[in-house]
Amino acid sequence: MSGVLTLPARRTAPGVFVALAVTLAIGWLVVTVDGGQLFSLPTTVSLLHVAAGLGLVAVGQTLVVIGGSLDLSVAYVISLSTLVAAEAMNGDDAALLPAIGLALAVSAAIGLLNGLLVTKARINAFIATVGVGLLLKGYLDNGYDGPAGKTAPALVQGLGYQRVGPVPVSFLLLLAVAAAAWLVLARTRFGHHLIAVGGDPEVARLSGVRNHRVLVTAHVLCSLCAGLAGVYLASRLGSGAPRVGTEGLYDLESIAAVVLGGTALAGGRGGVAGTVGGVLLLASIDAIFNQLEVDAFFKQVIRGVIIIVAVAIYARRALRKAAS
């Protein structure tokens, strides 16, 4: 995308975990001095719930960003997926699996559209996915004024609120999806091709990679992840919510998490582990501020500053490494 983005090769996945540890340590100290408890059961559980929702989206986003693309339609895909799932279930446990299947199929179809627009129609990914987002926004605004449908009780009890010790099932789902994505990137032909396409599309093409097919697959996987996040949010909310994706800023926050995790926006470099770290970092900051009862708006200011500063530190380290 720009010269600034083409930094030399680096592995920053550990960097974000150092930042996470430091943040948690400082946060614990400040919260304790303040008379609160950061690692109490309710705080931990809610932290992991926040991380699960954003994480599912961000893992998918990682795949497209590594491929040199990006997806700004995810927020609308999430909202649509909550509605499709909740309306198809309509409070009936028997319809659980077909409804989830339907929500994921719709999401995958949107991903396919994104991928085809980016590859076959050669539209810049930024414009293509904003455009598809607008298409979905019109559909959602036109059809829904508020929550609709009813999530099956089994899903609410299972994915929504069930947990193993302090770890919610949804966070385990995130770990499973992240592990699968890591495996795909590290061990499969598709993963290697994706990294190659993101690194240099022309070289990849000349080496026999079918760029279009690879990018379309990445977009489908990204939308599937967003659809899964939608199913999870439907299980939390008990119904479909037409604005949950946009109000949660899932499009921009997922990209922020990906970049915090050390994946280059220009593509070709990065990984899922870093993204999970980035998500946990954002969720921890959220939890710490909630414990300190910081004003929601102030929280947003600090969040903006932290995102910029963290990425600036990465860039600095990369420059220093390049110099030495």
Binding site: V4, V301, G304, I308
Partner: peptide, 15 residues
């Protein structure tokens, strides 16, 4: 500082 403008201006948006 070498921060991609996408992230800089997104952060500025939040701020």
């Amino acid at each position: 500082l070498g921060v991609p403008s996408f992230i800089t201006t997104l952060g500025m948006f939040l701020i």
